[in-house]
């Protein structure tokens, strides 16, 4: 049992469901002085202080990877218990109900919503518009006409971040949360405004890669730890 409980003492547990690049996200947490463990067993999920769901690749493969390792139920259980979780890129998309990538696939359904593709270049007809959306782009506060703009990022992942700062994206799909209240920040690409940061209680996610977004990204990861007393 000692072996299994081993990750209890680590600040963050990074879930490996068969993806290749876990180094950058690990090093980003190391950079801010946090201890991390890469985990892939259900027991390890259950003992985690906080969960990071990184990601690259296709939605269906990602969910299959989680399922194969028996991680879906343990993750859901932990979220119910209030464990903080951060999804990154595909990891963020998998927090949602379902995705249209290569068919219709079920997600973790921790946040209601669907993941849909960017419009094809010929539908948009904008110079320089290509899919995937790859490169640096700006974070904005979502407009809802009610919230106080100045304060809407206070007490969130983006508390110390200036609006319109650039972060690094690589993706062809993006999520549409059913409840607009879950949208913390948006980004516009090819005239399509999409949810770039999502939050619902103890679960949050970034469509961009904080671990590849320079100092800004590091600040966001630091804030995630700070907000959750990690």
């Amino acid at each position: 049992m000692v072996m299994i409980k081993n990750n209890e003492k680590f600040d963050v547990s990074i879930i490996n469901y068969g993806i290749n690049n876990l180094k950058s996200v690990s090093m980003a947490f190391q950079k801010i002085g946090k201890t991390y463990k890469i985990i892939e067993k259900p027991e390890e999920v259950l003992f985690a202080k906080s969960l990071i769901l990184p990601g690259i690749g296709a939605f269906g493969d990602g969910m299959k990877g989680l399922k194969k390792r028996g991680l879906i139920e343990p993750i859901k259980q932990k979220i119910n218990e209030g464990t903080p979780m951060l999804g990154i890129c595909l990891g963020m998309q998998m927090l949602f109900t379902e995705s249209e990538e290569f068919g219709l696939y079920d997600g973790l359904n921790l946040i209601s919503g669907r993941v849909i593709p960017f419009k094809k270049p010929k539908e948009v007809n904008l110079k320089g518009y290509k899919v995937p959306h790859m490169g640096w782009n700006e974070l904005k506060k979502p407009y809802d006409g009610i919230k106080n703009f100045e304060s809407s990022w206070n007490g969130t992942l983006l508390a110390d971040i200036n609006e319109k700062i650039d972060v690094y994206f690589v993706h062809s799909y993006y999520p549409i949360p059913k409840n607009k209240e879950n949208i913390l920040a948006t980004t516009t690409y090819g005239n399509q405004e999409f949810c770039a940061v999502v939050k619902k209680e103890n679960v949050c996610g970034t469509q961009f890669h904080p671990e590849k977004s320079g100092n800004v990204g590091i600040q966001i990861l630091k804030k995630f730890c700070e907000l959750n007393n990690i």
Partner: peptide, 10 residues
Amino acid sequence: NQASDKIFIP
């Protein structure tokens, strides 16, 4: 391997 320890851009 060494670069990815401290470089946080693609």
